[in-house]
């Protein structure tokens, strides 16, 4: 039971990281119809910049702030120089170009920081663990990541549902041409959304840095998970991204421990050690295929 609670918490924590990445991805796709495979690179850049800035500026907090801002600015620069020209192109052209950006930036990262994984220290304030229930301790840092994810989700909900920019974002996601026709500077709206999404992904990268190994290509697998999230949630929907991120995080984390246990009972130890993780890794894709088979546009499609 205690293991189950720990795994559920870990699942939510993974879900929050996924949400931070998926939020930008789903808005960028929802509003601009732009398939940005290079969004995972933004997460990687955030992590690397976090490690570097934390070293220069002395400490995690300065690293977090500087890296998020610089990662956002970098994403915005990519948007202005390259992505802007791809908005009106086919999805396939966007996939091809951003695939090119991924392999370029992964290699640039390898050149600048080397291939060896880097370490990021947790902030003093959040290291250590606390007693959750009798006989169960949980790291404070992971709770802090969850809190950060929830805070961003709450903030985004307010911005998207209560402010003028948010209204334009929602309108852009349901009918971009109409919004432009009403005299809104759609280019400016695009840059706001893109910069915000890039910054959130970078922020997620810094938050994840103490928990994972910071290495070239670290964004690639998370990108695939983030796409699973936005497709399950319904492209363009923040609410969908949040629900789907929690679902994917929980299914992935709980699936890993439960299936390994189950297969342990059913199969021999050596077989289950091999089969268990593989089946568990497959689980979220099974869930995704199932959801799309029943609801081809995801759970909360932005476009009615």
């Amino acid at each position: 039971m205690t293991l189950f609670i720990v795994q559920a918490l870990n699942g939510i924590q993974l879900g929050m990281l996924l949400f931070l990445i998926a939020a930008g991805l789903t808005l960028v796709f929802g509003v601009m119809k732009f398939v940005n495979l290079a969004h995972g690179v933004q997460y990687m850049i955030g992590a690397y910049l976090g490690v570097t800035f934390a070293g220069w500026a002395g400490g995690f907090w300065a690293g977090l702030l500087l890296a998020s801002v610089v990662a956002g600015a970098f994403g915005l620069a990519l948007d202005v120089v390259i992505y802007r020209h791809l908005y009106r192109r086919s999805e396939l052209d966007q996939v091809l170009a951003t695939f090119g950006i991924i392999i370029t930036l992964n290699e640039v990262t390898r050149l600048l920081w080397g291939s060896n994984p880097l370490d990021m220290k947790m902030p003093e304030l959040l290291s250590g663990s606390f007693q959750l229930v009798e006989g169960l301790r949980y790291p404070i840092y992971r709770i802090a990541v969850m809190a950060a994810g929830l805070a961003v989700a709450g903030g985004l909900a307010v911005v998207v549902n209560r402010t003028r920019v948010g209204m334009l974002i929602r309108a852009g996601a349901s009918n971009g041409a109409m919004v432009e026709g009403l005299g809104v500077d759609i280019g400016r709206l695009f840059r706001i959304v893109f910069g915000m999404g890039a910054m959130l992904a970078g922020f997620a990268g810094v938050l994840a840095a103490p928990l994972v190994s910071v290495e070239p290509g670290m964004g690639d697998n998370l990108l695939i998970l983030a796409f699973v999230v936005i497709v399950i949630g319904g492209v363009g929907s923040i609410r969908g991204a949040f629900v789907a991120a929690c679902l994917v995080g929980l299914v992935d984390t709980l699936g890993r421990s439960l299936i390994t246990d189950l297969s342990h009972a059913a199969l021999s130890a050596t077989t289950s050690a091999r089969v268990g993780p593989a089946v568990a890794s497959m689980l979220i894709y099974l869930v995704m295929a199932l959801i799309l088979a029943i609801r081809p546009t995801g759970l909360f499609p932005a476009r009615a």
Binding site: I224, V275, A278, M282, P296
Partner: peptide
């Protein structure tokens, strides 16, 4: 049943299943 980006992603999901299934073939 899907189209557009959802088609891209669901085909990717099936390929990922093959990928992990292959890894489990002890």
């Amino acid at each position: 049943r899907t189209s557009g980006i959802n088609f891209l992603m669901i085909t990717l999901a099936f390929a990922q299943m093959v990928y992990f299934a292959a890894g489990s073939l002890a």
